[in-house]
């Protein structure tokens, strides 16, 4: 990928968000992990409008080690809850680019998503608001943070096994 620092546009940011979702839907997890800064955190709050991810329970608050573990586990020989495997599908509304600061290499998007996950005869639909914090690192866009807010985060769920 060419160095994006000089000429980055809002469309580049939006394309990046779509590409990330496509990697998850197609199970291209190694590519997906390479989108992340090592310091990036994937946060899924438990409480509606939760502000503190650390000192109260979240659904997910995962560093690079946990994300790598999550992804490697999916392909393990003894990953029983993934025999058979789940599949997922993201439908994105066009992201809002809420922060666009190319000189600082800092961007933030807000995206409405319908997320479908299925396994065997079961299928769930979740409505999400996703906030991406992006940075330019070594000339490429990277995910510095991803917050996934479920519309019904306080509902009781069965397994949610892949990544909304």
């Amino acid at each position: 990928m060419e160095d994006m620092t000089q000429h980055i546009t809002r469309d580049d940011i939006i394309d990046f968000i779509y590409q990330e979702a496509r990697m998850l839907d197609e199970g291209r997890y190694d590519e997906w992990l390479s989108l992340w800064l090592e310091s990036g955190i994937y946060w899924m709050p438990l409480d509606y409008k939760q502000s503190d991810p650390i000192n109260a329970t979240s659904l997910l608050y995962e560093d690079h080690f946990m994300l790598r573990l999550r992804v490697e586990r999916l392909n393990g020989a003894r990953t029983f809850s993934q025999k058979p495997k789940s599949r997922c599908h993201h439908v994105l509304q066009r992201p809002f680019v809420d922060v666009f600061e190319p000189l600082e290499g800092r961007f933030q998007t807000n995206t409405s998503v319908h997320y479908v996950e299925t396994r065997l005869d079961e299928q769930i639909l979740l409505a999400l608001t996703v906030t991406h914090d992006l940075k330019i690192d070594d000339g490429k866009l990277k995910i510095a943070g991803k917050k996934v807010e479920l519309l019904n985060s306080d509902a009781a769920f069965g397994n949610i096994q892949l990544l909304p």
Partner: peptide
């Protein structure tokens, strides 16, 4: 400390 996880 906050609401519980609810897992069906």
């Amino acid at each position: 400390a906050g609401p519980p996880l609810r897992y069906m």
